[in-house]
Amino acid sequence: MKLDIAKGLQKRKNQLLEDWMSLQLADAGLREDLMSNEELREQSNELIEVLLNTISEKKLENIESADFDPVHEILSGISISRARQGFSPRETGIYVFSLKEALIKGLQEDYKDDPPALIEAILKISKLMDSLGVVTFETFIKGREEVILRQTDEISEISTPVIRVWEGILALPIIGTLDSARTQVVMENLLQQIVESGSTIAILDISGVPAVDSLVAQHLIKTVAATRLMGAECIISGIRPEIAQTVVHLGIDLSNIVTKATLASALKHAFSLLKLEVKKAQKEKAAI
């Protein structure tokens, strides 16, 4: 009767952990800045314990079965948190594959005298570990993607503030390139703010937009049209000379949109639309 792979490995648990740890610590790319050795040991210990408790001779036959779900779960958790902490794929890979090395070393000692059984056991274990490796990478990349998605959301949120410059006047400085996704965010924010504040005039300042091509112009025209549908007037300001040049050269018609060179002149125009007057204060009493 040959030895049980799982039982043999379970008996060696502590030794496996030591081997694994020393393999991990030996790697040049060890990130002590991101995770202390104690934490690493704890994490590794947890994984190895769950793994060894799960495997048995029978279960090794079918590595796709639901019996391995707890292992997958804990591994996913580890790789997602590693992705967030900024570990490289290589470091995460080494983490899993050095466990494979440690396990194989353990097997070699168990089956010292029975090479055919050793080969069989190694094949089984490496198949298992490979599938775990795949899981690790899948979740690692998913974790990274989540980070990227969150950042994208944040950027588009941050980059489109709507400022209330006066009662009834909103200003929206646009910084960076306008693409259709951005335009939608800008439009949504602006229109929502118009409703909330009951403003009748919105100023779109495009001095932070690096270039205006026909597509960007179209987006601007759309935003203006949507604002008008809501019943508010939209002024575009911050038209730099270069932008004026390209707009005319491209033959874009902005004639039915109120455009101003600077935010200041747009604000002046807005005041006159609202029939407001700004005056210098006379001695004590301020007059607006």
Binding site: M187, E188, L191, V195, A226, T227, R228, L229, M230, G231
Partner: peptide, 26 residues
């Protein structure tokens, strides 16, 4: 025409409708 929802306004513009000939208010 008053009180158009922001989402409706965006959709109308995307659709290509500008409601010419109708005045709008908040």
């Amino acid at each position: 025409v008053v009180g158009m929802q922001p989402a409706v306004a965006i959709t109308l513009i995307e659709l290509g409708l500008e409601l010419k000939g109708v005045h709008t208010a908040l």
